[in-house]
């Protein structure tokens, strides 16, 4: 176990209870503190109470663009918190949401977009990279 001083808090939002549980299990095993929210409302409540070090959001939640709205809210409230967007959009609709330039990245308000299904090692690598950038 790492000491409290270095424990980073990750907000995970996903409307699939098992995807949420799996991320939580794996992140906790990797010594992160996890705030798990099954929806946009719950995530907003959690954000009122504390500031995470990083957020992992599912793009398509109950109202289709819930993830977008939440990332916008998060960016406004805590501008420095990196956001990883996880999405099944590409495999579901064939649309490619991968941001190709800085311009698009600012529009989707995410630092990284990962297509579902995400391997945990891949997610972990992105989390470590984004957290290392932070002071």
């Amino acid at each position: 176990m790492q000491t409290g001083a270095t424990t980073r808090t990750i907000l995970v939002v996903d409307d699939d209870p098992d995807f949420l549980a799996q991320q939580q299990m794996q992140l906790e095993a990797a010594h992160f503190k996890v705030l798990a929210a099954p929806g946009v409302q719950e995530a907003r409540h959690l954000l009122e109470e504390c500031q995470p070090d990083l957020a992992v959001l599912d793009l398509m939640m109950e109202d289709a663009d819930g993830g977008f709205a939440l990332s916008y809210h998060l960016r406004k409230k805590y501008p420095g918190v990196p956001i990883i967007m996880v999405t099944a959009v590409t495999s579901q609709t064939g649309l490619d949401f991968t941001p190709s330039g800085p311009e698009q990245k600012s529009w989707v308000k995410a630092d990284v977009i990962l297509p579902k299904p995400v391997r945990f090692e891949q997610l972990k690598r992105e989390i470590d990279r984004l957290l290392a950038r932070k002071p």
Partner: peptide, 29 residues
């Protein structure tokens, strides 16, 4: 399918620590 696949990966790799209850939860879910 994706949910079950995720749990099976966790079970195969024993990737979430040593607490047997967590693995039991993966099986139940």
């Amino acid at each position: 399918l994706a949910a079950v696949e995720g749990y099976l990966n966790i079970l195969r790799d024993r990737s979430v620590g040593d607490n047997p209850a967590v693995y039991q939860q993966a099986v139940e879910r």
